[in-house]
């Protein structure tokens, strides 16, 4: 058989036994949240997007294969289907990212109002190219499509906030601020989105359920001790 038509060895297939539940890492809170969000839809599979958001938060900002497996298991669907969904949407991170993502819009309005200058400035400042993460794991820089705040072009999304009318100076100040802040992280963005799905009464409900679980386990500990 000629070289050209030999089977390539590329990705060595491993085998997964679907009947074996995957390792589950969602916190009790996450489980409670997902339970309630599922009720918003006539079937549980519809909770796919919010479930992936929960997973992105629970797995520290991105979705490793294990996270996809957990979501599939919790929604009763196949691993491949979840991977198909997760890789369709750009905001789900399939690879590890920095603590904070700087998502610079370079779409039409921003492109003519200095979006690329902001991007280049950040590349220089952070010493990385768009799409990369700083070696210290602090920042991931990304070029994104229209954030639809063009009135404030150029715009950048940082976690759960937009920053507009950017100038290199503003960006520098912002970077300083972000370095020492717990705000606007990737995890916080995911959490914000999850919380947006939950109504006030659902959120209260979850707190009650968690408190009860805590009390329950605490009580038991007491007895044991």
């Amino acid at each position: 058989m000629s070289e050209a038509i030999r089977l390539s060895e590329y990705p060595r297939a491993k085998r997964i036994d679907e009947r074996q539940p995957p390792e589950l890492r969602f916190s009790e809170r996450a489980v409670q949240e997902l339970e309630r969000i599922k009720r918003h839809y006539p079937n549980k599979r519809a909770a796919m997007l919010p479930a992936l958001w929960i997973a992105q938060r629970e797995y520290g900002g991105h979705l490793p294969p294990e996270a996809l497996m957990e979501v599939a298991y919790r929604l009763g669907t196949s691993y491949a289907v979840v991977e198909g969904v997760a890789t369709f949407y750009t905001m789900y991170n399939k690879r590890p990212v920095g603590r904070v993502m700087l998502e610079v819009c370079t779409n039409l309005t921003c492109s003519i109002c200095g979006g690329y200058e902001i991007l280049r400035h950040l590349e220089e400042k952070l010493g990385i190219r768009a799409g990369e993460t700083t070696p210290d794991g602090q920042f991931t820089l990304v070029e994104v499509e229209c954030l639809n705040d063009c009135g404030n072009a150029p715009v950048m999304q940082v976690g759960n906030r937009y920053f507009g009318r950017l100038t290199p100076e503003k960006v520098d100040a912002l970077l300083e601020e972000l370095k020492n802040s717990e705000e606007h992280t990737v995890v916080q963005l995911a959490d914000t989105i999850v919380q947006c799905h939950l109504s006030e009464s659902e959120r209260q409900d979850i707190e009650r359920a968690l408190a009860k679980a805590q009390a329950g386990s605490g009580g038991q500990d007491g007895q044991n001790g």
């Binding site: 918003h40 997007l49 919010p50 992936l52 958001w53 369709f88 949407y89 750009t90 905001m91 789900y92 499509e145 229209c146 989105i193 947006c196 799905h197």
Partner: peptide
């Protein structure tokens, strides 16, 4: 009324 958040797709 439920909020359903997207995840990055025009």
């Amino acid at each position: 009324l439920y909020i359903h958040m997207g995840a990055g797709s025009y």
